[in-house]
């Protein structure tokens, strides 16, 4: 995958943007505004789940405006793990939005908090929590 790999700084930048959006969501508390902010986050994750982290809105911003200003790097990353992490993000934020629509407003800050931890660790340390959950997920499916 080295030939078709993606610049690893792209998903990290995307996670940073996502962390900012999730902080805003948390600051809004619980209510229509917070639900709307979380829905935007879920929408961004949905784009990433379908197109991969490099195809997200943040990914396009990175490749068009940020990356040309950075030093070029030969480092490449397999696009599958970041994409899987986008799916995990979609499941978490999507559940929050669905529960809020069903009347459970408290689900919004909980979902935003969980997603923020994952996005923050990715942006700050390059640690992909969503990717780490892959094996756990497989084990649960295997037992079921």
């Amino acid at each position: 995958m080295t030939e078709t790999g993606i610049d690893p700084r792209g998903p990290r930048f995307g996670a940073g943007v996502m962390a900012g959006l999730l902080v805003v969501t948390l600051l809004l508390g619980a209510g229509p505004a917070a639900t709307a902010a979380l829905a935007v986050a879920a929408l961004l994750f949905a784009v990433g789940a379908v197109r991969g982290a490099q195809g997200t809105v943040q990914g396009v911003v990175f490749s068009r405006w940020i990356r040309p200003r950075l030093r070029p790097t030969a480092e490449r990353e397999d696009p599958r793990p970041p994409r899987f992490a986008q799916v995990v993000g979609l499941v978490i934020t999507g559940s929050g939005v669905v529960l809020a629509v069903l009347g459970l407003d408290a689900a919004v800050p909980v979902a935003a908090g969980v997603a923020l931890v994952a996005a923050f660790l990715n942006a700050a340390f390059g640690f992909c929590l969503g990717c780490e959950m892959y094996v756990l997920g497989r084990r649960v499916l295997h037992r079921a």
């Binding site: 902080v23 948390l26 600051l27 508390g29 908090g113 923020l116 931890v117 923050f120 660790l121 700050a124 340390f125 640690f127």
Partner: peptide
Amino acid sequence: VDLMTRAALVAALLAVSALAWWALT
């Protein structure tokens, strides 16, 4: 006041996750 409380909670959440990550690695 709510906003300040929320901001403090967000900061605490980030600090705890950074510590947990450090301990784990």
